[in-house]
Design a protein around this nucleic acid. Structure first.
Length: 744
DNA sequence: TCCTTAACTGTTTTT
DNA sequence: CAGTTAAGGA
C-alpha cells in the first residue's frame, strides 16, 4: 500500500486485521509490526476497539526480536535472560573493548567506530564476515573492534539494539526448521512504515513470508526519514520485483490537511529526484494560506509563537492541545520552553528515552540487571562502586584482568577477590561485601518488583547521600527514584504473581518517552520532526527553517541525505490539519555564540506566491536601511565556509526565483554608525582564524576592543580567549565569531 | 580513593 | 553550551 500522508493508512491496516479475523483467521496467526511503541500501542488499541478485544500480536520490530530471541537464545549464543544494552551501555562496552584489546583507533572516536559497527549490523554483516576495505582506515579499525565487541557482548549475554534484529535475521536464515516453524506461526504479517525497514528487517519479513506469503506492507517513500539508521528505501521501491504477485494499492487522497498546506508539501517534495511521483489531492477546503515568518532572533520566534498560542487559547478559539511545535534538533526546544512557561501555556515535550537514561535510574536498574543476568559485566561495573564503597579504579582493573584470564564474569571474579593479585586487603574486603550483597539481592529475583527495588535501595543505602544534600539536583534524583518505585508498583499490579523482573527490564530498555505522550492531555506538544511522524495536529509551527539546521549541516553535502532532509520537512508540514507556520530567525544562538543564519533552501522550493510572508522584529545588529541590499545578499556573510558552501542560490530543479529582498534583509552595504566612526570593520569581512596572534588587540561588535589572552585548537576549531575592558574574559570559536583584528 | 574545579572538545535524528 | 576528562588536593 503506497499511502500518502493523511490518507487513512492506519485505518486501512486495522480494518484489514479485522477483516482477516472475520474471515476466520485466528488472532495468533496475525503479526503486525511497527517501528515505534507509540504506533504499536495505537494500532493495538484500534484493533481491539474494532474487534472487541481480539489478541493479535502487535509489536515493534525490536520487541518482536527480543521476544523471539528469548525463545531461541541458544541458537545465537545467548542465554534466555540476556540483557539489552542501550546506546550508553553499548558505547561503554565498546570503549572498554578497545582499551582492553589495545586497538589503535588512530583519530577515530568511539562514536564513529560504533556507527560503523551499527551500519554493518544493519546490513546484516556478521562480525566474522566483516571485510575491511583497502584505503579506509576506519574499516581497518572496525575489522578489529567489531569482533572483539561482539564477543564481549556474547560473553556478557547481552545484545545491543541492532542485535535484536541481526540475531533474529541470522536465526531465521541459518535454521530452516525454525524459520518454517515461525513462518507457519505468523501466517499473516502486516508492516507499517515499510519505507523505514533496513536490510535485517527485510530479511526477517522475507523469511516469515515464504511458505505463507501473506505480507501486507504499507508505506510512503516520501516519508522515509531513517536512512541514517540503515533504512533502505529500495526495500519499498523494489517491493513489486521482490514479490511478483504483489498487488499494489495507492492511497493518494488526503483527508487531513487543507489545500493550502498540501500544496506547499507537494511542491516541496517535488524537488526530490529519487522518488515515485504521486499525486496528492484533497477534498478539504482551501484553508488559510501557509505562513512563512522571519524573526530577528530565536527569542522573538519563541515569544511570538507562545504569545499567539496564548491568545488563541484565551480567546477560546483553540485549546492548547491543538498546537504542536516541531524542530529539527532537540537543542532547539530551550527558548520555546522558556517562552511557553512565561506565557503560562501548558506544554509537553516528547524526548527520546529520557527517564530511563537518568543516572540514578540506570544505577538502580543496573542492580536488577545484574540479578537477572549475573554475567552482565556492564551492570557489574556500574554497580560495584555505586554508591561509593571504596572500590577504586585500580581494583576494578585487576578484577577485570583476572576475570578475563580465567574466563569468568566480573561478578565471579569479585567473589574471589582475595585470590586476585594486586588487590589490597581493604579493597578485597569491600569487594567481598559487594559480592555478598548481590547474592543476597539475588534471592529476591522472584519477588514483586517494588520489593526488589525497595530492597536494593535500602541495602545499598543509595538514597542516603541524596537525602543529606540540599542541592536541587539531588532532590530531583530522589523524586525520580520515587517515580521509579511507583512505576514498579504499577507493573506489579499489571503482572500479578511476581517473577517478571526480566519483562520489566525489557520494557524499560525498549521504552521511549514518546510513549508517554498523551494525546488526551490538554497541552501544547513539542517534539523533533522525527518524533512527529504518524501524528497530526490542527495547528503546526515548524521552527528554525535555516540552512545548517534544516537541512542539517551534516546532510548538506550529500544529495541523497539532502533529499532525506527534504522528506523530513515534508513529514512536518503534512502533520498540520488547518494551519501551518514555517519560520526562521535571522540570528540564532548556537553553541553559546550568536550567529547570523541563512534561510533554508527548502523555502525557495515552496509556492511562496501563495503563502503569507511576514517579518517580525528588527535585527539589532544591522539597524535601519534594509532596503539598500546588494545582490550578493546570500553569500558574503561572516559565516564559515560550511555555511557559504551551499548558498540557497544553488536550488533544485523546480525552485522559484530567489527570495524577495524585503523578506530577507541581509547585511547592508551602508555604513552603520559604529563603522563610520572607524571603530568597526565591516562584519562581513571575514578574517581567517590564522589572522589572529597572541597578544593582538581585537574588536568585538558588542564588547568593544579586547586583547587576545590565549589561543588554542586549529583550523575551524581554533579558539581565542579575549580579555575585554568591561566584559571580562570570553572565549570564541574564531571561525564563527564576529571578532576582527583591530588594526588593518 | 574521592571530591572539586578547571580545561577541553564536539556537537542530528531513534529503536 | 554541556558533557567529559584531567588535574589537584584532602
Amino acid at each position: 500500500m503506497l499511502a500518502g500522508p493523511g490518507s487513512g493508512k492506519t485505518r486501512v491496516v486495522t480494518h484489514r486485521i479485522a477483516h482477516l479475523l472475520r474471515e476466520g483467521v485466528r488472532p495468533g496467526e496475525i503479526l503486525a509490526l511497527t517501528f515505534t511503541n507509540k504506533a504499536s500501542d495505537e494500532m493495538r488499541t484500534r484493533v481491539e476497539a474494532l474487534t472487541r478485544g481480539a489478541r493479535v500480536w502487535v509489536s515493534t520490530f525490536h520487541r518482536f526480536g527480543a521476544r523471539l530471541l528469548r525463545e531461541y537464545a541458544s541458537y545465537v549464543g545467548l542465554t534466555p535472560n540476556f540483557t539489552i544494552y542501550d546506546v550508553d551501555d553499548a558505547r561503554q562496552t565498546l570503549k572498554r573493548v578497545i582499551e582492553a584489546g589495545g586497538i589503535r583507533t588512530a583519530h577515530y572516536s568511539p562514536e564513529r567506530i560504533a556507527a560503523a559497527i551499527s551500519a554493518a549490523k544493519n546490513q546484516l554483516i556478521a562480525f566474522d564476515q566483516y571485510q575491511p576495505q583497502i584505503g579506509s582506515p576506519l574499516s581497518q579499525i572496525v575489522a578489529e573492534a567489531y569482533p572483539a565487541y561482539q564477543q564481549r557482548l556474547l560473553a556478557s549475554s547481552a545484545v545491543d539494539f541492532d542485535d535484536l534484529l541481526l540475531h533474529v535475521a541470522t536465526l531465521l536464515y541459518q535454521n530452516a526448521d525454525v524459520r518454517a516453524e515461525l513462518d507457519a506461526r505468523h501466517r499473516f504479517v502486516l508492516v507499517d512504515e515499510y519505507q523505514d525497514t533496513n536490510r535485517a528487517q527485510y530479511v526477517m519479513l522475507r523469511a516469515l513470508s515464504i511458505d505463507y506469503p501473506n505480507l501486507a506492507a504499507t508505506g510512503d517513500p516520501d516519508q522515509s526519514i531513517y536512512g541514517w539508521r540503515g533504512a533502505d528505501i529500495r526495500n519499498i521501491l523494489q517491493f513489486e520485483s521482490d514479490f511478483p504477485d504483489a498487488k499494489v494499492v495507492r492511497l493518494e487522497q488526503n483527508y487531513r490537511s487543507t489545500k493550502s498546506i498540501l500544496r506547499v508539501a507537494d511542491q516541496l517534495i517535488g524537488s526530490n529526484l529519487r522518488r515515485k511521483a504521486k499525486s496528492l489531492f484533497t477534498d478539504n477546503g482551501e484553508g488559510a494560506p501557509v505562513k512563512l515568518v522571519q524573526y530577528a532572533t530565536q527569542d522573538d520566534e519563541a515569544r511570538s509563537i507562545a504569545d499567539e498560542i496564548a491568545n488563541e487559547v484565551a480567546a477560546g478559539r483553540r485549546r492548547p492541545r491543538d498546537f504542536a511545535i516541531f524542530y529539527r534538533v532537540n537543542a532547539l526546544s530551550r527558548s520555546l520552553e522558556r517562552a511557553l512557561r512565561e506565557q503560562g501555556v501548558p506544554y509537553q515535550m516528547v524526548r527520546g528515552q529520557e527517564f530511563y537514561q537518568r543516572k540514578e535510574i540506570k544505577d538502580v536498574l543496573a542492580y536488577c540487571q545484574l540479578i537477572n543476568n549475573p554475567r552482565d559485566d556492564q551492570a557489574a561495573l556500574r554497580t560495584i562502586n555505586t554508591p561509593a564503597r571504596g572500590i577504586g579504579r585500580k581494583t576494578i582493573d585487576r578484577l577485570a584482568e583476572y576475570a578475563y584470564l580465567h574466563g569468568l564474569s566480573l561478578l565471579d571474579a569479585a567473589r574471589r577477590a582475595e585470590q586476585v593479585e594486586g588487590v589490597n586487603p581493604r579493597s578485597a574486603k569491600s569487594v567481598a561485601q559487594y559480592a555478598a550483597l548481590i547474592d543476597r539481592l539475588s534471592n529476591l529475583a522472584n519477588a514483586p518488583l517494588e520489593e526488589v527495588l525497595g530492597t536494593i535501595l535500602t541495602e545499598t543505602k543509595y538514597r542516603e547521600p541524596l537525602q543529606d544534600s540540599d542541592s536541587e539536583e539531588d532532590l530531583n534524583r530522589l523524586a525520580n527514584i520515587e517515580e521509579l518505585l511507583t512505576d514498579a508498583r504499577q507493573f506489579d499490579e499489571a503482572h500479578p504473581g511476581g517473577g517478571r523482573l526480566e519483562e520489566y527490564l525489557e520494557s524499560a530498555w525498549l521504552a521511549n518517552e514518546t510513549d508517554d505522550w498523551q494525546s488526551e492531555s490538554d497541552k501544547v506538544t513539542m517534539m523533533t520532526l522525527h518524533a512527529a511522524k504518524g501524528l497530526e495536529f490542527p495547528v503546526v509551527y515548524l521552527v528554525a527553517f535555516e540552512h545548517g539546521l534544516l537541512p542539517h549541516e551534516r546532510s548538506i553535502n550529500d544529495e541523497e541525505q539532502l533529499e532525506e532532509e527534504r522528506r523530513l520537512a515534508f513529514v512536518g508540514i503534512t502533520r498540520a490539519r488547518e494551519a501551518l507556520q514555517l519560520s526562521y530567525a535571522v540570528h540564532r544562538d548556537f553553541r553559546g555564540q550568536r550567529r547570523r543564519t541563512v534561510p533554508s533552501q527548502f523555502l525557495l522550493e515552496m509556492p511562496r506566491d501563495q503563502m503569507e510572508l511576514v517579518e517580525v522584529g528588527r535585527d539589532q545588529w544591522y539597524p535601519p536601511n534594509w532596503d539598500d541590499i546588494g545582490d550578493d545578499a546570500f553569500g558574503d556573510d561572516e559565516s564559515s565556509d560550511e555555511l557559504d558552501a551551499s548558498r540557497p542560490a544553488r536550488s533544485a530543479p523546480g525552485a522559484l526565483e530567489p527570495f524577495t529582498p524585503n523578506l530577507v534583509p541581509q547585511a547592508p552595504k551602508v555604513m552603520t554608525a559604529a563603522r563610520l566612526a572607524g571603530a568597526l570593520p565591516a562584519p562581513t569581512s571575514g578574517a581567517a582564524p590564522d589572522d589572529f596572534v597572541q597578544g593582538m588587540t581585537v574588536m568585538h561588535p558588542e564588547h568593544g576592543p579586547g586583547k587576545i589572552v590565549a589561543l588554542s585548537g586549529a583550523g575551524k576549531n581554533r579558539r581565542a580567549t579575549v580579555q575585554f575592558a568591561t566584559a571580562g574574559q570570553r572565549r570564541f570559536v574564531l571561525a564563527h565569531s564576529p571578532l576582527r583584528p583591530a588594526s588593518r
